[in-house]
Design a protein around this nucleic acid. Structure first.
Lengths: 125, 125
DNA sequence: TCAATCTATATGACGCGTCATTCAATGACA
DNA sequence: TGTCATTGAATGACGCGTCATATAGATTGA
């Protein structure tokens, strides 16, 4: 039985979906067009840039994003292929890896971040 | 240059992403487990159920969801294969189609909707 | 020190959404 | 009426995320 409360919930949810997709889509398209990387790539890049003191990243990354461990691994693959990031082995635990921005990665990140923040401001008000 | 305002925007965005994925994921898993349909399938079913007076649906559907026209077409494929919906040709414009719930579709929708609303309430507060 | 177990990451198969394209039906207009 | 542009929908190639698994390294405890 469809209560008014149900209707409200559904409307609220649709509105969240719309603004989520609108925002994510706008950022994704802009980054793709201007920097040739997708939103997820940028977000990993952003996380790596944030924690500029080392650590066994990969693991930590997984905890800061809704992406799957395997998705993170593939995003990093692409970033590495694009020469934006490099995987470094971890001396104290050789299963772990930590990530470093390359020069190119650092450069791209700082331009892309400006765009990213601008679009967030525009879309989140 | 990373302003405090930028940090706030990024935090806000991550929080939106997290709650979006948490909610969507929870609903998707529940519907998948109990009714064997995904979230997008349910949402199309829900839209069709909502507009129980006919019309040339497919088109209208595309306007009520952030999904692509082609995504809608494929979701409807699956719903049709599952016997939950049927495509009816439109007399006045033979390019268009409108959709109808089958009996099974109506039944599944009304159970699934309860679950859906409950999870929305739980997740959106 | 040797199993058994656990943990960090990678990988392959798979499903789904997107883009570009196609096809048929319509509409516009001369 | 004949052409040309437009519109509703379907389709195929493709990229990406997910799940289940694999692999190598760590840890525990007898």
């Amino acid at each position: 039985m469809a209560t008014t409360r149900d209707r409200q919930l559904v409307e609220q949810w649709r509105s969240i979906q719309n603004s989520y997709f609108r925002t994510a889509g706008a950022i994704d398209r802009a980054l793709e067009a201007k920097f040739d990387i997708g939103l997820n790539e940028f977000e990993i890049l952003d996380l790596v840039a944030e924690s500029e003191e080392s650590a066994c990243r990969m693991k930590a990354l997984g905890e800061r994003t809704p992406m799957t461990q395997s998705a993170v691994s593939k995003v990093v693959d692409r970033l590495e292929k694009a020469g934006l990031v490099s995987r470094q082995t971890c001396a104290d635990d050789r299963r772990s890896l930590f990530l470093e921005l390359t020069e190119a990665g650092r450069a791209l990140h700082s331009s892309a971040a400006v765009e990213h923040r601008a679009l967030l401001k525009e879309n989140l008000g």
